[in-house]
Design a binder for these strands. Structure first.
Lengths: 224, 224
DNA sequence: GTCTATACGATGATAGAC
DNA sequence: GTCTATCATCGTATAGAC
């Protein structure tokens, strides 16, 4: 009984730290949130943060991982289904479907898990953090997804060289990150332009853009 | 003579701080670079940083501004030329040319100003950085360019709604930033894929991608 | 004006008592 | 596991030398 109580208490402490960190990091920013303020807000001792997560940087990783891992799993599952279905029906996967497997979960499934959209802002950090371990996390978690994505795209567009597909996939990811940040209201839009605020619509706009980009010919000679 | 000597010394000090900051911020990241280490590396006193730039954040702004302002001016000039030429010849600007006016200076003209690619790394990271003063800088400097870019694109693609153009332009910017970071070697590429290392080639790949994305129809119903 | 030496408050992290 | 006390380091401010 006592053991259970201690274990519960421990879990509860770590959980409160995680929840509070996600909220404060998103609201005030990572570097502007001190571990002292975080501990006070979460009603835990400051040292408990380091005890449970090792460091402030590791806490950030834990915050991001908690949301990102399920998302990536969902995307991988969708990609695998697309590959198997195409293989069974003896046809190529459709480029649009492949990209939809990445875009759609990002904008819909993840959203239900979050109370606010600030996590999108936080997630963008993964791509830009130069320092230390956050980088390794990104690489470690994304590599399997990207590998599968690249292979599926090779099936969809076999006439394009692999290196070109790599470049264009990264271009697409850049566009996706930007779309996430705009949807999160994190990008200031000039003048008096108001943008749609519907995840499905934004996902559709992005999907159209990246699908056309991926399927582009090797080089462009346009007349209009 | 004495004034000149003092002035030279001042410029030299501020210049060394700027150069060292650009290099260290890109290599180690902004927050991981202490003002003490920076001062030591630049062979200046630590307080000289605050004397010349006010604060560490202001120093970051100065680093960005030094590279960004000439680039943006060049892009604005190119866009204005495109608009005027199209107006004179009574035709629409070509979508590809409009995007080239953004992409080409980023990858070529600016490059000659840089000894290394540090600024690409720094700019790419800062663009995705949610916090801090760097945000305001980008916003302030980019707004005139984006406004002109949007108007020129409206001329090029008058059949598309303005809001759609805004979304797609931001998607394109996201792809551009990602391309910069990859060109700077700041993005880990999986497995044993080696990517081209020629600025003109990368610019061409990106241009094809974003041109097709911008010119995409309103929505996609693909069969392949 | 330009630069230096020094000091201050706050931060993230840690050691050891409980 | 949790706490208090303490540490090294951070960005910054200031007084004074040149």
């Amino acid at each position: 009984m006592k053991k259970v109580t201690l274990s519960m208490k421990q879990i509860d402490t770590a959980q409160r730290i995680l929840d509070t960190a996600e909220r404060l990091f998103a609201q005030r920013g990572f570097h502007s949130t001190s571990t002292r303020a975080l501990a006070h807000e979460a009603r835990v001792n400051q040292a408990a943060i380091n005890y449970h997560f090792g460091s402030k940087e590791n806490l950030l990783e834990a915050v991001i991982e908690r949301r990102l891992v399920p998302l990536i799993k969902l995307q991988i599952n969708k990609l695998q289904t697309i590959r198997e279905t195409a293989l069974k029906e003896r046809r190529r996967p459709k480029t649009k479907d492949v990209l939809l497997a990445i875009v759609e979960p990002t904008f819909t499934s993840i959203r239900s898990l979050l109370k606010n959209r600030s996590f999108f802002t936080l997630a963008g950090r993964l791509f830009s953090e130069p320092e230390g371990a956050a980088r390794a996390i990104f690489q470690q978690k994304f590599e399997p997804l990207f590998s599968l994505l690249l292979n599926t795209m090779k099936d969809a567009l076999p006439e394009l060289p692999e290196e070109l597909l790599v470049w264009r996939l990264f271009f697409s990811i850049g566009a996706l990150v930007q779309a996430m940040r705009m949807f999160a209201g994190d990008v200031p839009v000039p003048d008096k332009i108001t943008l749609v605020d519907d995840a499905a619509v934004v996902a559709g706009l992005l999907l159209t853009f990246v699908t056309c980009g991926m399927k582009a010919p090797l080089s462009i000679y346009e007349d209009s």
